[in-house]
Design a protein around this nucleic acid. Structure first.
Length: 558
DNA sequence: GCCGTTTTCGGCCCGACTGTTTTCAGTCG
């Protein structure tokens, strides 16, 4: 089944081809459409079935028709046609660092170079020397772009990974005291599921000093470029980091600009122009006069807009909503009142448990659901290993008084009662493949959190994830936002929200302080436009108990 | 190709940086 990512990829390929043909505005139109599809929190096919493709920003009649064709046949005739007009290697040339459509086209048309391999041969044969516009430095850059250590262009890493790297860099830079302020911007701040590079924005009167610090950080492999206000470095991992330094009174304008998205920015600047203003990364300008830009609020206010949460800045209607005062209320960190999925370490001591619960209390949590492995489902009935029962009982005994632990839970647990005096009040399933068989209805418990296998590779999970969204919806289960390294669940979150379903947000309780789980999961839920009412663990302890009570009675009767 | 309280045609964000240039083109974000 075609995925959103695959459709976007084809549109991007069309854009590249049109670029090579020298088209002026079409390539950007196709790229805009591709970006729009990539950030969709819903399956393209579902939108197409509702005949609402043209409501997606950047998609009009022509592209909607091509997407329909693609969803139906898996091909786009227009793409096949224009692709046949360009040697495939020319597109690869364009993906080399420093080579854009103009240069690639010149290689192809003027120099008959149609692949990276041929470019390498041309360089070795000194065929590029003396070509106008290509000097010795450019040839050197091309040589390294072709080399084995060349940066992987266009590869993106999972948000959790990027988040952790960014936190490490930010902490190291802040510790030097050379910046007044430094924050991560870009797609990381928008909590996109994947991140292509890190954008760090700093305010400091001494940009050079900041760049010196950044260049010398551990893990920085090389400096790719450095100017007056901007430095780009590459980490040992290959990840690129852009650092921009502005004055403190420019921070707001720069923060908006470097947070993006590109389409959001373009839209903002267009509105500004229509109002006789100009917005750039240095501020808001009326003619020559600078009229603001110290804070993000000032920038949006200048355009008569409410401040827009970064997770929504994708030009998907958020600007219109901000103008109309109809921005959705998003769940916030403060809304989350409990953790429902704390995995108890197998050999946890009383002290370990107390430490975690103390952390929960510090974080103002009202409850903690503890998970113990060791349960399974066999032939339609729940089987709990004796060991798991014992651990649950033991844990129950270790529960410190006055601590906000309220339930003990088995992973893939059933509805039966647990050890004496304790009930398994809800179930946390860890499916590995496909939806649960219908027979499991027989033992459906009171409260369900469904979550995807954290170790499953991202490839091919779309279908699996959809099956689970369906299952969760039909069984009144909450779907946990998955922040695991390869779990990218914002599409799931979007669909659950669209169906008025419930999400659960893991809080990373018991992990290290810079664990990315909570900020990432919260961000994905916010990108899916979930509000507090749609978050299971944003409910109070009383509400959760109420949710459980009548059903538990029913189960016992049944 | 998209889009619209300056609408159905005529526009299309804005700036940093680099290399190859005597003032700019190309790339990138």
């Amino acid at each position: 089944m075609p995925t959103n990512a695959e459709a976007a990829e084809i549109l991007r390929a069309i854009a590249d081809l049109l670029d090579l043909e020298g088209e002026r505005f079409k390539p950007e139109a196709y790229r805009r459409a591709a970006r729009s599809i990539e950030t969709l929190t819903e399956d393209l096919k579902a939108v197409a079935e509702r005949k609402e493709l043209d409501t997606i920003p950047g998609i009009g009649d022509a592209i909607a028709e091509k997407i329909q064709e693609y969803l139906k046949t898996g091909r786009i005739a227009y793409y096949d046609r224009i692709r046949s007009e360009v040697p495939p290697g020319v597109l690869e040339l364009m993906r080399l660092a420093g080579v854009g459509p103009k240069t690639a086209r010149r290689f192809w048309v003027e120099l008959h170079i149609t692949s990276p391999k041929e470019l390498r041969e041309a360089i070795d044969a000194h065929r590029l020397e003396g070509v106008s516009g290509i000097g010795p430095r450019k040839i050197e850059l091309l040589r390294s772009a072709l080399g084995p250590t060349a940066a992987r262009v266009g590869t993106r890493i999972p948000l959790t990974e990027a988040y952790a790297v960014a936190q490490r860099l930010l902490a190291a830079i802040r510790a030097t005291g050379r910046v007044e302020r430094i924050e991560a911007a870009g797609s990381l701040r928008r909590r996109r599921e994947t991140v292509g590079d890190l954008d760090l924005l700093a305010s400091s009167p001494d940009a050079k000093g900041v760049f010196d610090v950044v260049s010398g950080l551990p893990g920085v492999h090389e400096v790719l470029l450095r100017g007056e206000t901007k430095e780009t470095v590459r980490l040992d991992s290959g990840l690129q980091v852009d650092v921009r330094v502005v004055a403190s009174n420019e921070f707001g304008a720069a923060f908006v600009y470097f947070t993006g998205s590109k389409d959001h920015n373009v839209h903002l600047r267009t509105i500004a122009r229509d109002r006789g203003l100009k917005i750039n990364e240095y501020g808001i300008f009326q003619g020559e006069e600078r009229v603001g830009g110290a804070t993000e609020d000032e920038v949006y206010a200048a355009l008569k807009l409410a401040w827009i949460p970064p997770e929504l800045r994708e030009n998907r209607g958020e600007i219109e909503a901000a103008a109309a005062g109809t921005l959705p209320e998003l769940v916030t960190e403060r809304d989350v009142r409990g953790e429902l999925h704390w995995h108890v370490p197998p050999n946890a001591t009383r002290e370990d448990i107390e430490a975690t619960l103390a952390e929960a209390r510090r974080r103002r949590m009202e409850y903690v659901g503890a998970v113990v492995a060791g349960t399974s489902v066999e032939g339609g009935s729940v089987k709990i290993e004796r060991g798991a029962l014992e651990r649950l009982g033991e844990l129950h005994g270790k529960r410190p008084s006055g601590m906000p632990i309220v339930w003990l839970v088995g992973e893939v647990a059933g509805t039966g009662t647990g050890p004496e005096g304790m009930e398994l009040d809800y179930l946390v399933r860890r499916p590995t493949k496909g939806p649960a068989p219908a027979s499991r209805k027989a033992f459906l418990p009171t409260l369900v959190i469904a979550h995807l296998d954290p170790t499953a590779p991202p490839a091919g999970t779309d279908k699996e994830r959809r099956a689970w969204i369906d299952w969760a919806a039909s069984h009144d289960a909450a779907l946990e936002m998955g922040p695991g390294p390869s779990r990218l669940d914002s599409i799931g979150g979007g669909e659950v929200r669209a169906r008025n379903g419930t999400l659960a947000i893991p809080t990373g309780l018991g992990s290290s302080p810079d664990d990315p789980t909570f900020p990432v999961a919260l961000g994905l839920a916010r990108r899916a436009q979930a509000n507090a009412a749609q978050i299971l663990n944003a409910r109070s302890r009383a509400e959760i108990e109420q949710l459980l009570a009548p059903r538990a009675t029913q189960e016992r009767r049944g």
